[in-house]
Amino acid sequence: MKVTVDEDKCIGAGQCAFTAPHVFDQRDEDGVVILLAEIPSAADEPAARDAATLCPAGVIKILDDGVENR
């Protein structure tokens, strides 16, 4: 599993950082997503998938073997 984010489209809702704090954080100045773990641990994979689903701007993408699975 690989995680990507589009910081330019992030609206700073914070669902990602709340849902998967080992994978995502937010910039203090504007709340934009910070990707902490491009390849999350197996234990963090379910939370990363949940965060992608919950993201209101749809900026988090999950890739499994190079195929996008949001």
Rank of each mutant, 00 (worst) to 15 (best):
A43I: 08
A37I: 00
D30T: 10
E38T: 14
I11A: 13
D44K: 02
S41H: 07
D25M: 06
E45C: 14
G31M: 02
K61E: 15
L35N: 06
V3C: 08
F24G: 06
H22P: 09
R70G: 10
V59H: 04
D25S: 15
E38Y: 11
T4Y: 11
E45K: 12
A42P: 05
T19L: 07
K61V: 14
C55Y: 02
T19Q: 03
L54Q: 08
L35M: 04
L35F: 10
S41P: 01
A20C: 13
C10K: 03
M1D: 07
A42S: 13
A20K: 05
R27W: 11
G14V: 06
G31L: 10
P46N: 05
A13K: 00
V32K: 12
V67R: 10
P21I: 12
L54K: 08
V32L: 12
P21A: 08
E45V: 13
R70C: 12
A47N: 09
T19R: 00
D64H: 04
V32H: 06
D64C: 04
H22K: 15
P40V: 09
L54T: 05
L35K: 07
T19G: 01
V67M: 09
D50H: 04
P21K: 05
L36F: 08
A20G: 09
P40N: 03
D64P: 02
V5C: 06
L54V: 02
G66N: 10
A20L: 09
I11T: 13
C10N: 02
N69R: 11
D65I: 01
K2Y: 11
A47R: 05
V33E: 00
I62M: 14
C16W: 01
Q15C: 13
D8N: 13
I34R: 05
F18Y: 15
D50M: 09
D65P: 01
G66I: 05
